[in-house]
Every structure is written in structure tokens, then in C-alpha cells.
Design a protein around this nucleic acid. Structure first.
Length: 826
DNA sequence: CCTCACGACTCAGAAAGCTACGG
DNA sequence: TCCGTAGCTTTCTGAGTCGTGAG
């Protein structure tokens, strides 16, 4: 690896650009020691490198790469060296990176001195052919440094912008485009004849050939039919009227499919080294286009890569599935930047943006129009950005506000259930459905969309009634064509439930099965009413509120009730308890997944393991009786290794419980205990796995469950769970928002974050970001099995707790949990 | 005033990619 | 030590929600 990569900060381009000639000089003169540290270090690590560039000073490297008048352009297909041209000068990026926590700075400085003292520094772990590895110094990668820079910005402390204004300055490098199509010249067969295709035609044929025949599109005969039809319509368009290819059925894409499959295999079987250039290219792209400067600080961009062309993969029976999604060109893309900020340079030679605008009321960086559904595609900031963090916080705060007036709202619709006028009756009944069953609101859908419904668009055919206990059965396809099947005995909700039942039955009476149940009600009217009950309230808030409320309710050991008074509970069962609560939320929200292909096999395997363990336990107990009867000699012992390697492994497993020589009663007892524990752990995992077969926990965790509830629970249940959370883990994630939501977890890395948590429960901020949440962190402990890393810094457990969790833990607990539940009046 | 399309954003599962574990 | 793979995270992009503004 060319270590000069390390200094590549293309976002530097975002800043006022120095003249090309001044670039290299300016760069060299602006390099501060800390920058040099980063530069020099990799050499120590990478002693295998035989590249001369390794010893070339940074400034020369920069000069070397800064060549040509076009140096300011970032070419999409340029090598990483070419891209280094982008490095102009020290920027806010570096300044920000350098201003991260002092601990990391000192670490770097330390690294620096070691690095300079000698190549074979004792502390640096150097992998050499000669062997002999020493402990590795933690060297922050560039993305880690950027991460730290980003985390240094605390959006919750920043000045609030006027309402409706999203930013004051916005600079970025625009978007990346996928590489142009590279023809493979593998022919399509038509009635057995080879057909020569133009590159554009071949590309489309290849898109089709790449669709797996057993996938969600072609695996289902119904969707396959639509898919094929849509594809072939577009294919014929590209072939032209005169073309000999006339019928889809006579087309044979298998040669192309085989070729693509081979390509995939080859790519898959590449070694790590072979994959490296591609990885580096992607990383360069990330550094070039993956960040933006907003009001002087760094933000991560989400989807800065323009979607490549392909076949539209609509979910379920989507009328447009299989349609060609056309290639997006720079001329299709509108770019949004600050009015006085630098306009990004289009990195496709000879092309330019559609337009550049300066709209500070929106949070997108770019958009283009997409041809299949006629919609708009935006380039937004990443999920970990302050933008998402802020709106996430606002969302959960709104849910908390709903908690305060939910009684009033429930009274409102309960009363409305008996209303004389049909409109109020329907509106109130719909509100009940949304509140209690957590259905989505169900906007109207167009002809060219899949037929899916939500509350307001429910049709008579989706409901069936059984007067015994007022059982209502709902059966329909919801968002993403996910089936919703649920039978609820409304009698359990008392008179209100019965009223809802009779209302719904009445709404359905004398209607055809295709008619809407709530024919008088529109989504707009429903939301208008909701916002009159509470400012900002809309139907979706109920899902957030109910999900978070359910989580809090289902988590065992509420405030004042200790789940684990003796602190003897294992971590594993606690994870299961958390997952159980999470699962209840996921089921409430109907978050499903298709079980992984290997699910049943894995389950069978685990079951087999469990059976074996149980069998072995039996045999161990038998040994015990033999010993007590003085017949220890009769105990079965381990047999010699089998010849076959595989057989040997099996045998080893089967005899894991046996002894080499006649055991003592003590030894047997010890093993029995161990086996009992093994069985317990495995069956727990088995149960958890089975329960999660078709439930997706991620969506609710990410979008519905207020992270403050999880934090509060972890703190409370902590004394034993305590050890399991390791700051290191979190530090490795990119999730700013997450770090904020779980500042305690980041304590080790940036101690001051703890302050947010320690100060007052009310100040805990909600974060957002895709990344491991608490139970994942707990799993670390579970699977890792190792003792927690607390050697660094903490003298004893008390100190550790004080550092990580704050001294006021107990007082804070109660307040924390009130995230949704018992909220103190504001 | 109403309605209807559109714009901007959140939410969603599948697929791809990565990593740590156990044999 | 190496290798296969389970089980996770990340990426991708389609599918919703909901407010707004044009006609």
C-alpha cells in the first residue's frame, strides 16, 4: 500500500483552492508535525513494502502526484495516485481531526516518536517473514481520524438555525458515477442461434441474465411474468423494430448468465491482495466524495454513489418490476451547495451537472429524476450525520409528547366510536386501529404500484369477523408487500373493543369486497384531526410511541424492581430478555424477514448438538453411578484417533465427555456441571434463534425504539451486565448519533461524552445510526467469553463504574426510564 | 376552496461484505 | 496456522408518510 494515501484529504478541495502551481508548495509548507506523524507511521507497520515511495518525504509525494493542469479534477477512473492530485492544502478536515480528544493525540505523538526512532521499534507489531511479532501500536486509520473529527462536533450544543433553514454553508464534491459498461461479447442465443448485440443491448441482456432464477423476482411465477414482460418490452425497444429477436420465449440468456456467474466466482475467489486495489479505489472515492463541509464542520454523506443502471426490482407484484432503470449521467443531476461555496467539479470528463442550486431549506446534496416510477432520488447525509440525529431526536421527543396527551386522545376517539355521523365514527375507529394494532396510515396508491394497503386503504376483503369474542381477522399485504396476518379478539379490550368490532362490521356491510372499509375517511383528514389534538401529531407517531412504550413495558426489572438483586445472573439470559422485548416490538410493527436459506440446516445442526450433549450428560451420570458402586473400571474411555480426518473430528466431538483414563468422582461431577451449563446455554440460544426465525429485530431497533430506554435499562440491570459493555467496540463504529445516544459506551475513548450522560438524564440525546446497539455489545461479551478489557485505566470495578457509568447511577435510573413511560412534567 | 401531484423525508428488507470463531 | 462459515454490519435502493403549493 502506498502510504501517502494516508494524507489524501480530497475534501481539501472544498476549501478555497490554491492555484495549481502553488498547490504542492503550499501543501508542503502547511504540513504540521501531526500530519507528518500520520505520514511516517505506516512505514513502520508495512515493512514488507519495497516501494521507494515509502521513503519519499510527503512533500515530494505530493509534488509527484500534483502534475498536469487538470490536476484539480478528480477523475472517476483515475488511479489512487492520480487522485492524490486532489490534495491541495491543509483543511478543516485536518484541523478537525487534529482537534480530537487529547488522548488520541498523545497516542499519535507517542507513535510518532517510536516510529522515528527505528523501524524495528519494539512496540510496533511488525509482521515479517522472519516471524517474531510484537505488540501493535494503535495507529488510527484515516477513516478513524475522520470519524473522530466528526464526533468532535456536538450538534446538540450547536447554535440553532432559524426554523426551516438546514444549513448556512454547504460544500461537497458532488457524486460518483458508476463506471461505463464494459462489453463481454458473449452472445445471446435466439432459437439456438448466436445473436450479436451492440454494447447497449448486451448490457440490458446482461442485466436480465444476472437476475437469479430462484430470487424474489423470477422465483415467483406471478412476479416473474410481469418481470419478463417489462424487461422484454424495454429490450425490444433497444433492439429496434427490424430486429430478428421477436419473442422472449426463444431467447436464451444462459451463456451470458454463465459468463457472469464465472466472473462473480472469480471475483469471490480473489485473494485479499488481489482485492486490495479495488478496496483502495473505493476508499479513495469515500474520502473524495463521502464527506461534506457544513457550517464549518464535517458531515458524512450517505449515498454519494449514483445508482447504477439495472432492472427495477419492485417488491411483490409490482406492475413495473423488470423495467430498465436507465443510466444516470451528470447532466441528469442537480447539485445543491451554499451560495458562496465552491461548486463541485464534475468528475466525468466532458460532462457537467444539470444545474447547481443553493437551497438551504433542504438537507439533500443532489438529486436526479428516476425513469421507472418518475420519482426523485436524493443524495442525503448519512444516517450517522447530525441531520439524521436531530430529526431522530425530534421524532422521539414527539413520541414523548404523545405520551402526555395519549389519554386525552384515547378519550377523544372512544367517544367518537359512538358518534352519529359516519365520518367521525370511521375516523375514531381508524384511530383505534392505528393506536392499538399499530397499522400504518395507508395512503392511496397508484395503478402502477403494488397493491398494498394500510389502515385507511383497507378493503372489505382484508377483514373477516367472528362474533365469538369479537374476533377480527386482518389479512393483507402491507408496506413492501409484507403479509400482515393477525386475528385479534376485540372482546379483550372491553366495551371499546366490542364497539370497534361492531363498527368495523357495519362499515363492511353491504359493500363489495373491493370497496374501502373507511370510505368516508381520507388520510389527510385523519392527520388533520390528529394535529388538532396535538400539534405535529400524525398517524406514524403512534407507531413510534407504541413501539417505545412496548419496549419499556416488556423489558424486565422496571425501576424499583431489581431483575438481578444478587448480581449473579449471566449475561446471556439478559440478552435473551432484551431480545424478547425487542421481538415483541417487532411483532407489533410486523417487521418480518424471510428466514435465511441455511436457517433450517443450522437449526438442525444445533438441535443435533443439543441432543448429543444431553446424551453425553446421561453417560456422565451413568459414570457417577458406576463410581459409587465401585465399578469405576467399567467406565468407557476415549478411543484412539480415527484415521480419516473428518471422522476423527466427529469422533472427538462424540467423545468430548469421556476421559483419557479412569476418572475420579470429582472429575465426573465437574464435567457434569460443565455439561449442564453447556446445555443451558445452547438451548437458550436455540430458543432465541427459533423465535427470531421470521422476525426482523433490526428495523424496530433502528427506527422505533427510543435508545434512551435501552440505555436506561442497561444502566439499571447493569451491575452484572456491567462488564459486558466495552467502550472499544463502540469507538470502532461510525455512528455519531449512536455514540451520543450511548455516551457511556464511548467513555473510554472520549471521556467528556460521559458528561452528557452524567449531567442529567434529561440531557441524554437520542442518536441515530446503523450500528450495533446494546444487545450486540452484550453479545460481544457472550461470544467472546474473554474478560472485559478494563486493564487500561481502571484500578478496580468501582472506579470503572464511576468512570463509565457515572456516580449517580441509581438516582438517574428512574429518570432515564421515563424516556417514554413516566415522563416528569416539563 | 378543494384536490391532486409533487417534493422531501423516514422506514424497509435483501444482498453484499466483513470478521471472528471453532475445528 | 489455516480455512470454512456463522452471524453479524453495511450497502443498496424501493416503499412508505406527510406537508405544500399549483391550478
Amino acid at each position: 500500500m502506498d502510504s501517502s494515501d494516508d494524507d489524501l484529504i480530497p475534501i481539501a478541495m472544498l476549501r478555497k483552492k490554491p492555484k495549481p502551481s502553488a498547490a504542492s508548495n503550499g501543501a508542503s509548507s502547511s504540513i504540521r508535525p501531526s500530519a507528518r506523524v500520520k505520514k511516517v507511521l505506516p512505514r513502520v507497520i508495512d515493512s514488507d513494502s519495497d516501494s521507494d515511495s515509502d521513503v519519499v518525504p510527503l512533500m515530494q509525494l505530493k509534488k509527484k502526484s500534483a502534475r498536469g493542469p487538470g490536476s484539480s479534477r478528480i477523475s472517476s477512473n483515475s488511479s489512487s495516485k492520480d487522485t492524490k492530485v486532489a490534495v491541495k492544502k491543509e483543511t478543516g478536515v485536518k484541523r478537525a481531526a487534529a482537534s480530537t480528544s487529547s488522548s488520541s493525540k498523545s497516542r499519535k505523538l507517542k507513535a510518532n516518536s517510536t516510529a522515528r526512532s527505528s523501524k524495528t521499534t519494539a512496540k510496533a507489531k511488525v509482521k515479517r517473514e522472519k516471524g517474531g511479532s510484537v505488540r501493535k501500536l494503535k495507529v488510527h486509520s484515516k477513516s478513524e481520524r475522520l470519524d473522530m473529527a466528526i464526533k468532535a462536533y456536538r450538534w446538540w450544543n450547536a447554535e440553532e438555525l432559524p426554523e426551516g433553514i438546514q444549513w448556512r454553508t454547504l460544500e461537497h464534491n458532488g457524486v460518483m458515477f458508476p463506471p461505463p459498461y464494459a462489453p463481454h461479447h458473449v452472445p445471446l442465443l435466439y432459437n439456438g442461434q448466436e445473436i450479436e448485440l451492440t454494447p447497449v443491448q448486451e448490457e440490458l441482456a446482461s442485466f436480465y441474465a444476472a437476475i437469479p432464477s430462484d430470487g424474489p423476482q423470477l422465483g415467483n411465477p406471478k412476479t416473474a411474468k410481469i418481470f419478463n414482460k417489462n424487461f422484454f418490452t424495454d429490450f425490444k425497444k433497444l433492439l429496434g423494430r427490424q430486429h430478428e429477436v421477436k419473442s422472449f420465449e426463444s431467447c436464451d440468456f444462459s451463456r451470458i448468465a454463465k459468463h457472469l456467474e464465472k466472473q462473480r466466482e472469480e471475483k469471490k475467489s480473489m485473494t485479499k491482495e488481489e482485492k486490495q486495489p479495488e478496496k483502495e479505489r473505493r476508499e479513495t472515492e469515500l474520502f473524495t466524495n463521502g464527506f461534506a463541509l457544513v457550517d464549518g464542520h464535517l458531515e458524512k454523506v450517505g449515498n454519494f454513489r449514483i445508482e447504477p443502471p439495472g432492472l427495477f426490482r419492485g417488491r411483490g407484484e409490482h406492475p413495473k418490476t423488470g423495467t430498465l432503470k436507465e443510466r444516470v449521467m451528470p447532466g441528469d443531476v442537480t447539485v445543491n451547495v451554499g451560495i458562496s461555496d465552491r461548486v463541485p467539479i464534475c468528475n466525468v470528463p466532458g460532462h457537467s451537472w444539470k444545474q447547481v442550486i443553493h437551497r438551504d431549506t433542504v438537507s439533500w446534496l443532489a438529486y436526479w429524476n428516476e425513469n421507472v416510477m418518475g420519482g426523485i432520488k436524493y443524495v442525503f447525509f448519512a444516517a450517522s450525520s447530525s441531520f439524521k440525529g436531530k430529526s431522530d431526536l425530534a421524532k422521539y421527543e414527539k413520541a414523548r409528547r404523545l405520551k402526555k396527551c395519549i389519554d386525552k386522545i384515547r378519550r377523544n376517539y372512544t367517544k367518537g366510536l359512538r358518534a352519529k355521523d359516519m365520518f367521525t365514527k370511521q375516523r375514531s375507529t381508524a384511530m383505534w386501529v392505528i393506536d392499538v394494532l399499530a397499522l400504518r396510515v395507508g395512503n392511496e396508491k397508484g395503478e402502477d404500484e403494488a397493491d398494498t394497503v394500510g389502515c385507511c386503504s383497507l378493503r372489505v376483503e382484508h377483514m373477516s369477523f367472528n362474533d365469538v369474542n369479537c374476533a377480527l381477522t386482518l389479512s393483507f399485504l402491507g408496506k413492501d408487500s409484507m403479509p400482515y396476518n393477525n386475528t385479534v379478539e376485540l372482546a379483550q379490550y372491553g366495551d371499546v373493543g366490542k364497539l370497534v368490532y361492531t363498527n368495523l362490521k357495519k362499515f363492511c356491510a353491504k359493500k363489495g369486497k373491493n370497496e374501502e372499509v373507511f370510505h368516508e375517511l381520507s388520510v389527510t383528514e385523519l392527520n388533520k384531526h390528529l394535529s388538532s389534538l396535538m400539534p405535529g401529531l400524525s398517524a406514524k407517531v403512534f407507531r413510534t410511541f407504541n413501539a417505545s412504550f412496548t419496549l419499556e413495558k416488556e423489558l424486565p426489572g422496571p425501576p424499583g424492581e431489581d431483575l438481578d438483586p444478587k448480581g449473579k445472573m449471566d449475561v446471556a439470559p439478559k440478552i435473551v430478555l432484551y431480545n424478547d422485548a425487542n421481538r415483541k416490538v417487532a411483532i407489533l410493527c410486523n417487521h418480518q424477514r424471510t428466514a435465511p436459506k441455511s436457517f433450517d440446516t443450522t437449526l438442525d445442526k444445533m438441535n443435533g448438538q443439543l441432543d448429543q450433549l444431553k446424551e453425553q450428560l446421561k453417560e456422565l451420570k451413568h459414570m457417577q453411578t458406576l463410581i459409587s458402586k465401585g465399578k469405576a473400571k467399567g467406565i468407557k474411555l476415549k478411543t484412539a484417533a480415527a484415521d480419516d480426518k473428518e471422522e476423527d473430528a466427529l469422533q472427538k466431538k462424540a467423545q468430548a465427555h469421556l476421559f483419557q483414563r479412569t476418572p475420579s468422582a470429582d472429575q465426573v461431577a465437574k464435567k457434569i456441571d460443565a455439561w449442564k451449563k453447556k446445555i443451558k446455554v445452547l438451548s437458550l440460544r436455540l430458543q432465541d434463534k427459533t423465535d427470531n426465525k421470521e422476525v426482523a429485530l433490526g428495523t424496530s431497533k433502528l427506527n422505533y425504539m427510543d435508545p434512551r430506554i435501552t440505555v436506561a435499562w442497561c444502566k439499571r440491570v447493569r451491575p452484572a451486565v456491567g462488564d459486558c459493555v466495552d467502550g472499544e467496540l463502540l469507538a470502532g463504529t461510525h455512528c455519531v448519533g449512536f455514540a451520543v445516544a450511548f455516551p457511556c459506551l464511548a467513555a473510554e475513548r472520549s471521556a467528556d461524552l460521559v458528561g452528557v450522560f452524567e449531567g442529567a438524564a434529561g440531557e441524554i440525546r437520542v442518536g441515530h445510526g446503523r450500528g450495533p446497539r446494546v444487545e450486540v455489545l452484550m453479545q460481544e461479551k457472550q461470544t467472546g467469553g474473554a474478560t472485559p478489557k478494563r486493564e487500561r485505566g481502571w484500578r478496580d470495578e468501582t472506579e470503572m463504574k464511576r468512570t463509565v457509568w457515572g456516580q449517580q447511577t441509581t438516582q438517574l435510573n428512574h429518570k432515564d426510564t421515563s424516556a417514554i413511560g413516566t415522563l416528569p412534567p416539563s
